[in-house]
Design a protein around this nucleic acid. Structure first.
Lengths: 176, 176
DNA sequence: ACGCTCATGACAGCAACTGACATCACGGTC
DNA sequence: GACCGTGATGTCAGTTGCTGTCATGAGCGT
C-alpha cells in the first residue's frame, strides 16, 4: 500500500504498472495480485473496516432514534475514525481526483456502504423505502461533509462538517 | 450496442469478449474501440444526452423555484424520456446488476450527472453547498425512484415514483 | 483523372490480470 | 532428528482489454 500510493502520487495512477509497485515493495507482481484484486483496490483497503463499524453503530443506536439521526450518528462515528489521518486522506483524495477509474471504485464503495446501512436500518424495523432513503441520504451527507473537511483547513472537525451538512439539508427540505 | 447487450444478456458481461461483439456487428475489434472507450461504455451511451436535458431543464426552470423543486422537475423530465423504453431499461438493469464493473460505471455517470446539476444550480444563483446538496439529493431520489419503477409493475409511472420518493424524504427530514 | 478526407482493416505491442505448478520456510508429530 | 502438511511466494505461460501506427479503399469535389 505504501509503495503504491507513493508511485501513484509521484507519476500518476495510469503511469504506474503493477510490476513497479511490486518491485518497490520487494515482492513479485503475482504476489501483489494475491493481496489486491486489482490495481485500484490498494487505495480502498480500509473500506471494509469502515463499513463494519458503521453497521454496528447503526445496530447499537437507541431503539427510539429516528432513522436519519441514526445515520448521522453512525457517519460521525466513522468520521472520528478518519479524523487522525487527515494527511493520508488528502493524499489519497488527490490521487483519486485525477483518475476516473479510481473515482468509480470510490463510488462503488460508498454505494456498498449505503446499501449495507440500509440493511442495518431495516433490521431495526425501519420500512424498506425509508431505510434506503435514510441510508443514501446519510452517505450523501457524509460525502459532502468529507469534501469540506478535506478541502478546507478552516473546518478541522469532520464530524461537525457532517452535522452542518445535514442541518443544511434539513433546512432545504423543510421549506414547502 | 445491439450486439453487445445481446451477448451480455446471453452469456454475461465478463464472458463476452470485445472481438465477439465486433464480429456479431460485422466490424473489427479495432473499430469497436473507436466508437466506445471501453467494453462497458456500450451500455452508457445515452447518458450524455440525459445529462444535457437535465442541465437545460434546470436552467429553464422558473427563477423563483426552490433548488430541490427545480431538481425534482428536471429529474421528472428525464424520467418521462425513459418512460417509453421500460423493456430496454429492464434488460440493461439486469445486466448491470450482475457485474460490479458495470455498477461502477453507472455510479460514475450518476455522480457526473449530480455534479453537472450542481453547476447548473449554481448558475441560477444557488450557493455552493446548497447546490451540491440539492443536486445529490435530486439524483438520489431519481435513483431510488428508478429502482421502484423498474422493479415493480405496480408502479408504471416513473415521474410519479420520483415525486413519491421525494415526498417520503421530506417527511423524514422535517421531523425534528 | 486527380487528390482529399474519413471510416475501416491489419498488425504489433503493452499491461492487467489468471491459472497451474514448483519451491521453500515453518511448525507440529513420531 | 527425520518426516510431513500447510501456507506464502516465485515462475511461467496465456488470455484479454486496449492503443499506436500504417495501409487500404470508398465517396466526393475539382
Amino acid at each position: 500500500m505504501q509503495s503504491a500510493i507513493e508511485l501513484y502520487s509521484e507519476r500518476g495512477f495510469e503511469q504506474t504498472t503493477a510490476a513497479e509497485i511490486a518491485q518497490r515493495a520487494g515482492v513479485t507482481e503475482r504476489t501483489f495480485f494475491r493481496y489486491f484484486a486489482d490495481k485500484r483496490e490498494v487505495l480502498f483497503n480500509g473500506s471494509a473496516e469502515l463499513q463494519r463499524r458503521v453497521v454496528t453503530a447503526i445496530a447499537e443506536a437507541p431503539a427510539e432514534m429516528a432513522p436519519l439521526d441514526v445515520m448521522s450518528r453512525a457517519m460521525q462515528g466513522a468520521a472520528t475514525l478518519m479524523q487522525e489521518n487527515r494527511a493520508w486522506s488528502r493524499q489519497r483524495t488527490a490521487v483519486i481526483a485525477l483518475n476516473p477509474g479510481l473515482q468509480e471504485r470510490e463510488l462503488l464503495k460508498l454505494a456498498r456502504l449505503a446499501s449495507a446501512a440500509a440493511v442495518a436500518l431495516r433490521e431495526r424495523g425501519v420500512p424498506e423505502l425509508a431505510a434506503s432513503l435514510a441510508a443514501e441520504t446519510g452517505v450523501t451527507v457524509f460525502k459532502i461533509g468529507f469534501e469540506t473537511w478535506v478541502g478546507d483547513d478552516a473546518h478541522p472537525d469532520f464530524a461537525r462538517c457532517i452535522r452542518d451538512s445535514l442541518d443544511q439539508l434539513r433546512g432545504m427540505t423543510s421549506g414547502v
